[in-house]
Each structure stands twice: as C-alpha cells, then as structure tokens.
Design a binder for these strands. Structure first.
Length: 765
DNA sequence: TGTGAGTTGATTTTT
DNA sequence: TCAACTCACA
C-alpha cells in the first residue's frame, strides 16, 4: 500500500523521507523541495512511532522555524515538535542552566547594538580609545573569536594589528562586564552552551538522549560553536539529519564554516547521502545561468541543477545609464505588467547587495504608484525609541543590567547628566556594586550635587514603582513604563513627522506586547518576551500575504521565491562588495550570494547594472561586476549594451558580446516603456551626455578603473586552453577577479600549473 | 544640564 | 548621504 506521505515524491526525496535511524546528509539545491522533504520526514518519523518530544529541528531564522511548524501542523496535526532557531534553543538551555556559567536565570540578551555600547564604554574607561581602532572593529573581532570558540583568555589574534592588541586586552574585560551585568551577547548564547555541553558530560548525555532525532537546516551556515553543539547532541544517538547546500553558504563573514558540511561525511562515516538536484522552481534558462555562474567556484561539491520545467524566457542582462534610470525603468516595467493584468505586485522582488541601494528603487516604485514593502534588518527593533523602551523592561527584569541603566537613566532627560553618571559609575566600581545599587546610595556619593542626588533618587523610585509590575503581563508594564518614565510625554512633544513616527512605533511595541500576553497567558512572561524581542528581526515580519512588491537584500532573500526577480547594482565595488575583492574565499561567497539571488526567480530574471551610480553621496563611474562575465551569453538577452561604442571610458566588457542589432537600442519595446509610453531607453540616452561629462571628469581625477583584458571572458572551467610552453590542457578552476584572476590548468601531460591570466600566455583553444 | 549646530566619519550581510 | 558624535553656548 503506498504510503500517503510518500505520494508525489521522487525517488531521491523518498529516500530521504524514509530514512529513520543514523546520520543523513541531504544536499539540496535551490528549489529542490527541501523543506517539503524535511517536513515529510519528520511526519514520517512520527508515524513510525518516534515520540514528538524526541525530535528537535534547528533553523537559523525564525521564519524557517515557523514555516516548519506550520507545515508540520498540517502533516501531523497536534504533534508538538520542537522547531526553533539555534539562538533560541541555546537561550532556553542557558536559561535552565545559567548558574553553571555564573549567570542568573533572568539574564539579559545583548544584541550587537548593546554589546557595541558596552565596548565603547570599556574602551573609554581603559583609555584604549586612542583612535588606532574602532569600537566596531573590536566588536567584530570579539564576535569572530567567539564564533571560533576562543574564550577571553584563549584569544588568538589573527592579525598583528592595533585592533588585535586592543582586543586581547579588552576581551576579558568585556566578558567580565557581561557577567557582572548578568548578560550574554548573541555569540555567548552559542559559546556558553557549547562549553556547557563540553564540560558537563551528564548534561550532554541527558540532552543527547532526550533529543534523539535532530534536524539541522541550512547546515552550510553553521559556525564552529553550532557545529559543536550539534555534535554533542548527536553522539550517543547519531540520528542527525542535516540539510544544506554548500553553494548557498552566505554567512562566512559571521563565522559559518563551509567545512562543516563539506566534511560531514568524515564526521559520520556511515552517513547516508541524498542529493536533491532537480529544481522545481525555476525555468531551464534560469537554472542554466545559475549553474554556469556557480561553476566558477572552486570550493564546492560539484552538482548540476536541472529541471523539467519549461525553457522559459531568457534572463535579461540590462545596463542602465544611472541608478535613476535603473529604478524608473524597473518600476515602469512592473507597473506595466500589473496594469496589463499579467502580474500582481507580489509576484515581483527586487534584490540588492546593500540596504543603502533600496532608496532610489523605492522612489521609482512610489512614483509609479506600485505598492511595495522593504524588508530591512534594522527597521523596527533597532530603533532608538524601541530600544529605549525595552531597556526599561530589561532593567526591570534584570537589575544588574548596567548597560540598560545607562541607556535609560537620562532618557528622557531628567537632569542626570554625564558628570553625574560618571560619578555614580566611579562609586559603583569602588564599591563593586551594580550601577543601580550605586544609584540607591546617591546621597552618599561625594562630589554629587544635591540636585543631582535628588534626581537620581527620583529615578530609583521610578524604577521601584515599575518593578512592582514585573510579575504581571507585559503590556501593562510597558504602558506604565512609557507613561511614568516620561517617554510618551517627550515623544508627544515632538510634533515633527519623525517624532510622530516614533510615538507610533512605541504604540506598536505595546500592541505587540499585548499579542505576546495573549499567547503566553501564564504570568512571568517577561523573560520570554525579552528573549523574543532580542531574537527577532524584521525579515521575520515580512508579510508574504500582502500584495506588494518586495524589496530586500540578497541575504534576506534566501529561502524565498518569486515569479519575477530583479537584482540591481551588480557592479564592481558593490557586488562583490569592495572589501571582499582580495580574498578568493570572499569572492566565492559573493558569487554564492548572486547564485542565491538568481535561483529565487521562478520565471523571469533581470540582472541589472548602471554606468553611473550615486553612492555614498558622490557620483561614480560604475563598472559591471566581473560576475556578469561569467554568465552564459547564449542564454541571456542583453539590453542597453554597446549603444555608445567606443565612448572611451566605459569598460569594454561587451567586447566579446555579440553586438545588438543596429538601430535604437531597447530590444523589447513592450518592456522598455516608461509611464508616458516613451521608450525609457531614449529618455536615458538623452540624459546620458549630461552625465558623461561628470564621469569623464571623475575619471581624469581618479585615473579611472583599469580595463580587464578581454580574454577574461573566454576562459571557462572545463574549457580547453593552450600554452606555448606546456601545450594543451584543461582549466580545472578559475579564481580571483580582475588582474588577479587565476586559472588552475591540468595539461594533457598530467602537469598542473597556475596562471595569472593577465600576465600569462595562456589562451583558450 | 540641555540643546542645537556643526563636524566627522562610516558605510555588508544577521541571530 | 546620513547618522552619530562633539562642542559651544544658553
């Protein structure tokens, strides 16, 4: 009898779903139905008699966790499987065992902003704010160290620079400060739990036995701490199923280690490996473009995307004059499609490498009257007014939280200035007390004016009053905070639109507290509320249901899909981003990021770049990203290329591209008209001479970017090449970009050599 | 102590 | 460009 859960599954999918015991590695290409497979597998496990309480599913984002829960609810109604993010899982575990690490159960979770504030303060306190390094740098390095599981006293500087020296001195102080404030930063959540499991075998064994079936999503994004946690929980019961795609690893910058997935088979020799390579999402052409791009990466598991979907329209590669042209044209196209009834707003997504690029696009869409939503990582929860309000809650929940106290003690202004705070802090240090305890003794602190002491005393009594409501539901507490602290009064006073926005945001926070209360009827949900607010982000708030065009970064786009995708500003210095142009690993990660973006598209894909871009306040000549050269020309439709041949400054990337047919450029009139029905290309061309001058000026000032040799375009991995000295061979790998582009070649004699393309006599055959 | 103008400096991605 | 931070002044 065919199993209902297995209906409509391919052989490979079925293999993964029905695997019960032992390690399992699912290499799942984009659009391969991975989520479906994973959820079906959990349902299958449950049907096979595995108790739901023994199953633990770990994800990276709340969205992924929620989706998994929702799908499971339909597949296996009523079964409660623990699906959560790594950070949430660790936060809970830490909550239960906080004492082990010298924390209290009510510890506060510091987000990056909070920890940065602590670091700033410490740098000042210890006279390390010399300007040789920045707080951000120090924060980064501490975070990286934690991701590598290096504790404060095991920090191994990776660079011999000033920052590393400062970090070495400051990291222990930072950790002490966190401990004293009864706080843990994001990285600590993982680090502490990994350590805890390492040091406490009883606890490890107990949890290992409890979570017998563990699933990890996006395994390619795990860092060392996460890796150790997963391993520790899958020792006695190695029923560990990980899914991932090395080609979609885009979080190396925050410690994700590609080795974790590449070497999974070494960690668990008797692993079962299932490859899901068939793509159900995108057209053939989109798949081929994605495939060709990612083939340029060297550090990967070879895998071919294929699909049985229709060939589809050729992905478009479009060059615009400047970013306004880009934004207006795209907005115009989208508007036209919607008006023609061919598409709905929600069918479209626009991706970009960095948030700052969204603005022009927003303007374009707004002018066209196209509804859109921007998914941005810093919209709501990092706003000052929200963080201020939450800092009160944090302090109420954890009176050791010095950082929160510093944030709220004079917000809104209540006559406790910097000098006063400094004196209180000095007193606290002397007496080894928390800032709040020091505040209680304000009257006894010498050097503190009477007036200041009174203000501080008032603040303390405000706090005490607020704390009376700590045990109840969250919403009334928030209301009280906003009223009694004077936050509302201060915000109401500000009649500017921004001020009104802030007030509205605080109201929204209160509303969401109400929702939280409704979901958590039991008392004492304060910790849980703070935990939730600390571990969410705006991407989680993205509304799939609303009928709007989605604007988001490529990172946020992972896991999503849209019928029509635009990726804008694919230009040197932006994508790949400037500082990753040196290291091959970084470039490969950027390439994967583009791969992720491309593979979000179901039917239509448009890759965009402009010749001029206003960025960081100034206008620059923009050069097409080298990635664009790696795309298969024969699969693509190129628009806006080469209409001004020999204009002297534009990088001749199109030298190898077949020239578009003569006549006015803009090959698909229906798509290339703006709201007035004029071909946008013409408007753009008319505007262009004006900007050329600027560009030329800029160039003469800065010397201009150097053109890459045209032969860059003609090397492909697997392609045949010829060298005057070594003869004929095959390209094994291409790495690097621009003048540093490197080819690894195996000659037919068996000899392997590396060549810097810009300097070698190597030629394609 | 609080405010506002002026300056600076930094700009990736996120739990 | 824009936000955060500094510094001078009320």
């Amino acid at each position: 009898m065919p199993h209902p859960l297995l209906a409509n599954l391919t052989a490979a999918q079925r293999e993964a779903v029905t695997h019960v015991d032992g390690p399992l590695l699912i290499i799942a290409g984009p659009g391969s139905g991975k989520t479906r497979v994973v959820t079906h597998r959990v349902a299958y496990l449950l049907q096979e008699g595995v108790p739901a309480s023994q199953v633990l599913a770990m994800t990276f984002t709340n969205k992924a966790a929620d989706e998994m829960k929702a799908r499971l609810e339909t597949l296996a109604p009523g079964k409660r499987v623990w699906a959560s993010t790594f950070h949430k899982f660790c936060a809970r575990l830490l909550r239960m065992n906080a004492r082990m690490l010298g924390l209290d159960e009510n510890y506060t979770i510091y987000d990056t902003d909070d920890s940065l504030r602590v670091i700033r303060r410490l740098l000042k306190e210890h006279g390390e704010d010399s300007g040789y390094t920045s707080p951000e740098q120090v924060a980064r390095q501490i975070s990286n160290a934690k991701n590598r599981m290096e504790g404060p006293h095991h920090y191994r500087p990776r660079y011999g620079d000033a920052t590393a020296a400062v970090v070495q001195r400051l990291y222990p102080k930072y950790q002490e400060a966190l401990l004293a404030a009864n706080a843990a930063d994001f990285d600590d959540l993982l680090l502490h739990v990994a350590n805890m499991l390492h040091k406490n075998e009883d606890l490890r064994a107990q949890l290992d036995a409890r979570y017998r079936y563990i699933l990890v999503d996006e395994y390619q994004d795990t860092n060392l701490a996460q890796y150790l946690i997963v391993r520790a929980l899958s020792n006695d019961y190695p029923n560990l199923a990980v899914t991932g795609d090395p080609d979609q690893s885009i979080y190396g910058w925050r410690g994700a280690n590609l080795k974790n997935i590449l070497e999974f088979e070494k960690d668990y020799p008797d692993v079962k490996v299932v490859r899901l390579e068939q793509n159900y999402r995108s057209t053939q052409r989109i798949c081929r473009v994605a495939d060709a791009l990612i083939a340029n990466n060297f550090r990967r598991k070879k895998k071919t995307l294929f699909t049985e979907n229709a060939a589809g329209a050729p992905p478009r590669l479009v060059r615009y004059c400047d970013q306004r042209d880009e934004a207006d044209t795209i907005a115009g196209e989208i508007a036209a499609q919607i008006h023609a009834g061919r598409r709905r707003p929600r069918d479209f997504a626009v991706f970009y490498r960095i948030n700052a690029l969204s603005r022009t696009m927003e303007n374009g869409l707004r002018m066209m009257g196209v509804p859109y939503q921007v998914v941005s990582g810093v919209e709501f929860w990092k706003r000052k007014e929200i963080k201020d309000t939450l800092a009160y809650v944090q302090l109420v929940n954890n009176d050791k939280d010095d950082n929160a106290l510093l944030r709220v003690i004079n917000t809104p202004p209540r006559g406790i200035g910097a000098k006063t705070v400094e004196r209180i802090a000095a007193h606290a240090r002397r007496e080894r007390k928390t800032l709040l305890a020091a505040c209680r003794e304000a009257g006894m602190i010498q050097g503190l004016s009477n007036r200041a002491a009174v203000s501080v005393a008032k603040f303390v009594s405000l706090f005490d009053k607020l704390r009376e409501h700590a045990a109840g539901p969250v919403k009334p507490l928030l209301r009280r905070i906003v009223e009694a602290s004077g936050l509302r009064a201060a915000l109401t006073k500000d009649e500017s639109p921004e001020g009104q926005d802030r007030l509205a945001n605080v109201e929204e926070l209160i509303t969401s507290a109400g929702e939280f209360d409704a979901q958590h009827p039991e008392d004492g949900g304060l910790e849980a509320f703070l935990e939730e607010t600390a571990l969410v982000n705006d991407v989680d708030d993205w509304e799939e249901e609303t009928d709007k065009v989605t604007l988001m970064t490529l990172h946020a786009a992972k896991g999503l899909e849209f019928p029509c995708v635009y990726i804008i500003a694919i230009e040197q210095g932006i994508f790949p981003v400037q500082r990753s142009q040196d290291r091959d690993e970084d470039i490969e990660e950027e390439r994967r990021l583009l791969f992720v973006g491309i593979t979000r598209a179901e039917e239509e894909l448009t890759l965009c770049h402009a010749r001029l871009r206003d960025f960081r306040g100034s206008r620059r000549v923009a050069v097409a990203s080298p990635f664009l050269l790696e795309l298969p020309r024969e699969e693509m439709e190129r628009i806006g290329m080469g209409e001004t041949p020999g204009d002297g400054y534009a990088i001749d990337y199109e030298a190898d591209f077949t020239e578009p047919p003569p006549g006015p450029p803009g090959q698909s009139p229906t798509r290339q008209r703006d709201r007035d029905g004029n071909p946008t290309r013409r408007r753009g061309t008319a505007a262009f001479p004006l900007t050329v001058k600027t560009a030329a000026e800029l160039l003469s000032e800065k010397g201009g970017p150097s053109a890459d040799p045209p032969e860059l375009t003609t090397f492909t991995v697997g392609g045949r090449v010829k060298h005057p000295e070594y003869g004929v061979g095959e390209v094994l790998a291409l790495t690097g970009i621009g003048p540093k582009r490197l080819a690894r070649v195996r000659f037919d004699g068996g000899v392997e050599k590396k060549f810097i393309l810009s300097h070698s006599a190597l030629r394609p055959v």
